[in-house]
Simulated scan of single mutants.
Amino acid sequence: MSTPTAKLAADGVSIWLDDLSRSRITTGNLADLIHTRDISGVTTNPTIFQAAIGNSADHSYDAQIAELAGAGASVDETIFALTTDDVRDACDIFHPVYTDTKGVDGRVSIEVSPDLAHETDATIAQAKDLHARVGRENVLIKIPATKAGLPAITEVIAAGISVNVTLIFSLERYDEVIDAYLAGLERAQAAGVDLSSIHSVASFFVSRVDTEVDKRLNTVGTDEAAGLKSLAGIANARLAYELFEKRFAEPRAQALVAAGANPQRPLWASTGVKDPALPDTLYVTELVARGTVNTMPEKTLEATYDHGQVAGDTITGTYEAARTVFADLADAGIDFADVTQVLEDEGVEKFIASWHDLQNTVREALETAKASR
Rank of each mutant, 00 (worst) to 15 (best):
L243S: 09
E245K: 15
R247Y: 10
F248P: 00
A249Q: 07
E250Y: 04
R252T: 08
R252H: 10
V257F: 13
G260E: 07
G260D: 07
G260H: 08
G260S: 09
G260K: 04
P263K: 07
P263C: 06
P263F: 00
R265I: 03
R265K: 01
R265Q: 01
P266L: 05
P266V: 06
L267W: 00
W268L: 05
W268F: 00
S270D: 05
T271C: 00
T271H: 01
T271L: 00
G272L: 01
G272R: 01
V273W: 05
V273K: 05
D275W: 10
A277F: 11
P279L: 09
P279W: 11
D280W: 03
D280R: 11
D280V: 07
T281C: 07
L282A: 13
Y283G: 02
E286S: 13
E286T: 12
E286I: 10
E286M: 13
E286L: 14
L287Y: 00
L287P: 05
V288K: 13
A289L: 07
A289P: 07
G291C: 07
G291V: 11
G291E: 04
T295D: 02
E298G: 12
T300P: 06
T300L: 08
A303T: 15
A303M: 12
Y305S: 09
Y305L: 09
D306R: 15
D306C: 08
H307S: 11
H307N: 14
V310P: 08
A311Q: 15
G312Y: 12
G312P: 09
D313F: 04
D313I: 02
T314C: 01
I315F: 08
T316C: 06
T318W: 14
T318Q: 10
E320H: 15
A321S: 11
A322H: 13
R323Y: 12
R323W: 14
R323A: 09
L329W: 09
A330V: 13
D331E: 15
D331P: 13
A332H: 11
A332Y: 15
A332M: 14
G333P: 10
I334H: 01
I334V: 05
F336S: 01
F336R: 03
A337N: 07
